[in-house]
Simulated assay, not measured.
Amino acid sequence: MARTGDRPTTPGRGRRADAARNAGLLLSAARELFEEHGPEVALDDIARRAGVGNATLYRHFPTRGDLLVAVYAEEVAALCERGAALLREPSAVEALFDWLDGFVVHVATKGPLALAGTESRNERRTELFDRWHESMRSTAEALLLRAQEDGAVRSDLAVGDLLALTGAAAVAGADASHARRLLRILRHGMAV
């Protein structure tokens, strides 16, 4: 049996497979602990939960910021992948609001993670935020356009307006549940 770092490897499994597995374990553990305790959780706790040594953690993520960025980038990618899948749903308007529901929860709960992962590098922060925002905006735009083409939402509604209103609900909500309620009010209006 060959050894890779501090873990034995089985024949046929190379260093890359172990490295990818360890990175996945670290990201999963970090995501769980960030949700439980916030982005300032001890890195030793993340390595312990992942079942790897500290050296493995630092080999994959040299700084706390690198780990935070990787976790948040996965969150954004998952949200956008969900949007792409929803484009195949039969009801364009339900697909749009299903995605907006996930978006409002994302904004309501992931802001501190995004800020913590990028606050020390202004240039990198701008680049990352621009890339993340553009991917979410593109996803929302595709869903909105489909709903507009179906005649399910106003044709004069711009994606920027839609995201601003949804983001406002996320920020104004006391928690994710309240933000979702505010989004439902936006969707259905206040009329009886």
Rank of each mutant, 00 (worst) to 15 (best):
A2E: 13
G5I: 05
T9S: 10
T9M: 02
P11M: 13
R16I: 10
R16M: 13
A17H: 09
D18I: 15
A19K: 08
A23C: 08
A23T: 07
G24L: 11
G24R: 12
L25P: 05
L27F: 12
R31Q: 10
F34E: 02
F34W: 05
F34D: 01
E36H: 14
P39W: 00
P39L: 05
E40P: 12
E40M: 14
L43Q: 10
A47E: 06
G51I: 13
N54H: 15
L57P: 01
Y58A: 12
H60S: 03
F61L: 15
P62R: 03
L67T: 00
L67C: 02
L68G: 00
V69D: 08
V69W: 01
E74A: 02
E75R: 09
V76A: 04
A77F: 08
A77R: 12
A77V: 15
A77T: 15
A78P: 09
A78G: 06
C80W: 04
G83T: 07
A84H: 05
A85H: 00
L86M: 01
L86D: 00
P90A: 09
S91C: 05
A92Y: 03
V93W: 03
V93F: 14
V93N: 03
A95R: 01
D98L: 09
D98M: 05
W99D: 00
L100S: 11
L100Y: 03
H106I: 07
H106C: 12
A108M: 07
T109K: 06
T109N: 09
G111T: 05
G111C: 11
P112L: 14
L113K: 01
A116H: 06
T118M: 13
E119N: 02
S120L: 15
S120Y: 14
R124T: 13
R125N: 04
T126M: 11
W132I: 07
E134M: 11
S135H: 15
M136Q: 06
E141A: 08
L145M: 03
L145R: 00
R146Q: 00
R146V: 02
Q148E: 13
Q148D: 08
E149F: 09
E149L: 12
D150H: 11
G151L: 03
A152E: 08
R154T: 09
L157Y: 11
A158Q: 06
G160A: 08
L162W: 06
A168L: 15
A168V: 11
A169N: 05
A169H: 14
G173S: 10
G173V: 11
G173M: 12
A174E: 15
A174V: 12
A174D: 09
D175P: 13
S177E: 15
A179M: 09
R180A: 07
R181T: 14
L182N: 06
L183T: 13
R187S: 00
H188Y: 03
H188P: 02
G189Y: 03
M190W: 08
V192P: 02
